Simulated scan of single mutants.
Amino acid sequence: MTKPAVVAVSGVKNSGKTWLIAAMLPYLNAAGVRTAVIKHDGHSFDADTPGTDTARHLSAGACGTAVFDGEKFQLVRPAAVSEVDLIPLFPDADLILLEGFKHSAWPKLELVRRGNSGRSVCEARTLLALVTDLDILPDDVPRIPFGDAEAAARVILDYLQRREQS
């Protein structure tokens, strides 16, 4: 089976995607699953803090910058990329969680939360489960109570196990 597995954590804006990913990570780590996260930002963001040396290098015309301290590194390259381009940057990961990607074909957990959204916006065929506090369609998709990160992590662990066996 190809490594790493990829699962999207999807939903409309402010549905709780970041919260769910952060809450699932301890369960995934405890199960021995090395997990990386790739977040899609639908807006432009500053890849570097204004005023830093690397930001100055970029604004002066460098085609990219990197900074490291012996424990971690950050690479900034102005370029159009997709998640498919970024996945190979994590060859040691067993799992990559994508934050966002609601209209993608990736298998996913979708968050649908009262007061934020009233229905699923993802294609049912891509859903591993809905994480929701609503009684919504599709009925044939497993439901996880909103706030139950352990159950959401179990769905992903079950998916990884099925994937490994195929």
Results as ranks from 00 to 15, higher is better:
residue 58 L to Q: 12
residue 58 L to P: 04
residue 59 S to V: 12
residue 59 S to I: 10
residue 59 S to D: 14
residue 60 A to K: 15
residue 61 G to H: 13
residue 61 G to I: 11
residue 62 A to T: 09
residue 62 A to Q: 08
residue 63 C to P: 10
residue 63 C to D: 13
residue 63 C to F: 08
residue 63 C to I: 10
residue 64 G to L: 09
residue 64 G to N: 09
residue 66 A to H: 13
residue 66 A to Y: 12
residue 67 V to F: 04
residue 67 V to I: 15
residue 67 V to Q: 02
residue 68 F to K: 09
residue 69 D to L: 06
residue 70 G to M: 09
residue 70 G to L: 07
residue 70 G to E: 07
residue 71 E to D: 13
residue 71 E to C: 10
residue 71 E to G: 12
residue 71 E to S: 14
residue 72 K to Y: 10
residue 72 K to T: 13
residue 74 Q to L: 12
residue 74 Q to G: 14
residue 74 Q to R: 14
residue 74 Q to P: 02
residue 74 Q to M: 14
residue 74 Q to H: 14
residue 75 L to T: 13
residue 75 L to C: 15
residue 75 L to R: 15
residue 75 L to P: 08
residue 75 L to Y: 15
residue 76 V to R: 01
residue 76 V to F: 02
residue 76 V to S: 10
residue 76 V to L: 04
residue 76 V to N: 03
residue 77 R to G: 00
residue 79 A to I: 08
residue 79 A to W: 04
residue 79 A to P: 03
residue 80 A to Q: 11
residue 80 A to G: 06
residue 80 A to Y: 06
residue 80 A to W: 06
residue 81 V to M: 08
residue 81 V to Q: 05
residue 82 S to E: 01
residue 82 S to P: 00
residue 83 E to Q: 11
residue 83 E to V: 10
residue 83 E to D: 13
residue 84 V to Q: 11
residue 84 V to L: 06
residue 84 V to T: 08
residue 85 D to N: 07
residue 85 D to I: 00
residue 85 D to Q: 04
residue 86 L to M: 15
residue 86 L to G: 11
residue 86 L to Y: 11
residue 86 L to V: 12
residue 87 I to P: 03
residue 88 P to G: 10
residue 88 P to D: 09
residue 88 P to F: 06
residue 89 L to W: 11
residue 89 L to V: 06
residue 89 L to K: 10
residue 89 L to T: 08
residue 90 F to G: 05
residue 90 F to C: 11
residue 90 F to R: 06
residue 90 F to Q: 09
residue 91 P to E: 07
residue 91 P to R: 05
residue 91 P to H: 07
residue 91 P to V: 04
residue 91 P to F: 04
residue 92 D to S: 08
residue 92 D to V: 01
residue 92 D to W: 02
residue 92 D to R: 07
residue 92 D to C: 01
residue 93 A to L: 05
residue 93 A to E: 02
residue 93 A to I: 02
residue 94 D to M: 03
residue 94 D to T: 03
residue 94 D to C: 05
residue 95 L to N: 05
residue 95 L to G: 05
residue 96 I to L: 02
residue 96 I to A: 02
residue 96 I to N: 01
residue 97 L to D: 01
residue 97 L to F: 09
residue 97 L to T: 02
residue 98 L to F: 00
residue 98 L to K: 00
residue 98 L to Y: 00
residue 99 E to C: 05
residue 99 E to D: 08
residue 99 E to P: 02
residue 99 E to M: 07
